[in-house]
Measured scan of single mutants.
Amino acid sequence: MQGVVKVNSALNMRSGPGSNYGVIGTLRNNDKVEIIKEVDGWYEIRFNGKVGSASKSYITIVN
């Protein structure tokens, strides 16, 4: 499943599904990500070869 980031500035990509996990990357508006699965309001995603988590509130699913 594919998604597109929708933010005003930037979205942190984290090492796990929650804001208490470390930041491993930064996503910008309109970045395209691969959604692997949903976990507690977060998506596990793949972006630029990295796997991490980002809040699903800022990612829109595209077909």
Rank of each mutant, 00 (worst) to 15 (best):
A10L: 14
N63A: 13
M1E: 06
Y43A: 01
A54W: 04
K56M: 11
G41F: 05
Y58T: 06
S55C: 15
S15R: 08
S9E: 12
R46D: 04
G3Q: 02
K37Y: 08
N48C: 10
V39F: 11
V33G: 01
A54C: 12
S53C: 15
T60I: 14
A10P: 12
V62D: 09
V39D: 07
V7F: 06
Q2D: 08
K6T: 12
K50Y: 09
I24P: 01
R46N: 09
V33P: 01
N29C: 11
T26L: 13
S53V: 12
R14D: 01
G18H: 04
V5T: 03
K37I: 08
G41R: 04
K37A: 13
M1P: 07
V5F: 01
D40H: 10
L27K: 00
I61V: 12
Y58F: 13
V33Y: 04
A54G: 03
N20M: 11
P17I: 03
V23F: 04
V62L: 13
D40C: 11
I24H: 01
A54E: 02
T26V: 14
Y21M: 04
N30I: 03
K6A: 08
K50Q: 13
I36A: 03
N48E: 12
K32G: 05
R28E: 09
P17W: 03
S9F: 13
T60H: 14
I45F: 07
V7E: 03
K56H: 05
A54Q: 02
I59T: 00
I35A: 00
I59Q: 00
I35Y: 01
V5C: 07
R46G: 03
V23G: 01
W42T: 01
N48V: 05
R46W: 10
V51R: 09
R14T: 06
N48P: 02
V39K: 08
Y43F: 10
V33Q: 00
P17A: 06
Y43Q: 00
W42F: 07
S15I: 07
N63T: 13
K37G: 15
T26A: 07
N8S: 13
K50A: 10
G16H: 03
S53Q: 06
V39C: 10
Y58M: 09
V5A: 04
A10W: 15
A54F: 05
Y21I: 02
N30H: 10
K32W: 12
K56P: 04
S55I: 14
V5N: 01
V23Q: 05
N63G: 13
M1H: 10
F47R: 03
G52N: 02
T60M: 13
L11D: 00
E34F: 12
E34V: 11
I24E: 03
G52R: 01
I36D: 02
N48L: 10
V4S: 04
M1W: 13
L27C: 05
K50T: 12
E44M: 15
G16P: 02
T26H: 10
R46E: 07
M13F: 11
V51E: 07
L27I: 05
E34M: 10
Y21C: 09
N30E: 09
N30L: 10
A54H: 03
Y21E: 03
G16C: 07
N8A: 12
F47S: 04
E34C: 13
G3N: 02
V5W: 00
F47L: 05
N30A: 08
E34L: 11
V7L: 05
Q2F: 15
N48Q: 13
N12V: 15
I24K: 02
I45S: 00
S9C: 15
D31I: 05
T60V: 14
K50R: 12
S19G: 10
N63L: 12
N20Y: 10
S57P: 06
V7C: 15
R28S: 10
G3C: 10
I61A: 06
N63K: 12
S19T: 14
V5Y: 01
I45P: 00
L11T: 11
G25I: 08
I45Q: 00
Y21G: 06
A10H: 14
N8F: 10
D31Y: 06
Y21N: 04
W42D: 01
S53N: 14
R14M: 12
Q2H: 13
V39M: 10
A10F: 15
G25C: 14
K6I: 11
G3S: 02
T60L: 12
W42R: 01
V62T: 11
L11G: 05
V62I: 13
N12E: 15
N8Q: 12
V5H: 02
W42E: 00
S53Y: 15
G41H: 06
G41Q: 07
R14S: 04
G16W: 03
E44N: 10
R46L: 12
M1F: 11
T60Y: 14
L11W: 00
E34K: 06
N20D: 12
G22N: 13
D31N: 05
S15K: 09
I61Q: 06
G49K: 05
G49L: 05
N30R: 08
G22E: 15
D40I: 05
N30F: 08
N63R: 11
Q2W: 15
N12C: 15
G18I: 00
I45H: 00
I36T: 06
Y43S: 01
E38D: 07
T60K: 14
G49C: 08
E44F: 12
F47H: 09
I24G: 02
T26I: 14
S55R: 15
A54K: 01
D40M: 09
M1G: 07
L11Y: 05
S9Y: 11
K32F: 12
D40E: 11
V62K: 06
V7T: 14
E44P: 00
G3D: 03
V62M: 11
S19W: 15
N29Q: 08
S9W: 11
I59M: 01
V5D: 01
N29P: 10
K37H: 09
E34I: 11
S57E: 15
T26K: 12
K32R: 14
S55E: 15
V7N: 07
V51F: 09
I45N: 00
I36L: 14
K32M: 14
Q2L: 14
Y43D: 00
G52D: 02
S15W: 06
V4M: 09
Y21D: 03
K32Y: 12
I59R: 00
I35S: 01
Y43I: 03
G49D: 09
M13P: 00
K6V: 12
N30K: 08
S55W: 14
N30P: 03
V39T: 11
N63I: 12
K56N: 05
D31H: 04
E38F: 05
I59L: 03
R28H: 13
L11K: 09
Y43T: 00
V33D: 00
S9Q: 12
V4G: 02
E38N: 03
E44A: 06
Q2E: 11
V33L: 04
G49Q: 06
R14Y: 15
G18T: 00
N20Q: 14
G22V: 12
K37Q: 11
S15G: 07
N63E: 13
A54L: 10
S57R: 15
N63S: 13
G52H: 02
K6N: 11
M13T: 01
S15N: 09
R14E: 00
N48D: 11
N20H: 14
G18V: 00
S19K: 14
G22S: 14
D40F: 09
N8L: 12
K56V: 10
N8K: 15
I36R: 03
V51W: 07
N12R: 13
G22P: 15
E38S: 06
G52P: 01
I36K: 03
V62S: 09
R28T: 08
V51P: 05
G52E: 02
K32V: 15
V51S: 08
Y58G: 13
P17Q: 04
G52I: 03
S19V: 14
G18D: 05
I59N: 00
K37W: 07
Y21F: 12
K56D: 03
S57N: 13
S57Y: 14
I24A: 03
D31T: 08
K50W: 09
I35C: 05
K56Q: 05
R28C: 14
G18S: 06
G41M: 07
T60R: 12
I61C: 08
P17S: 05
R28K: 13
V4W: 05
G25M: 09
G52S: 03
Y58R: 07
S9V: 13
S19R: 13
M1Y: 10
M13R: 02
I61R: 07
R14Q: 04
A54N: 02
E38Q: 07
V39A: 08
W42K: 00
M1R: 12
V7G: 10
G22W: 08
S9K: 14
S15F: 06
Y58H: 13
G22L: 12
G25H: 08
G16I: 03
R28A: 10
A54T: 07
T60F: 14
N12T: 12
G41D: 10
G16D: 00
T26D: 04
G49E: 07
A10V: 15
G49F: 06
S53L: 14
L27A: 02
A10K: 13
S9D: 12
G22K: 14
S55P: 15
G16N: 03
G52C: 06
N29I: 07
N30T: 05
R14K: 04
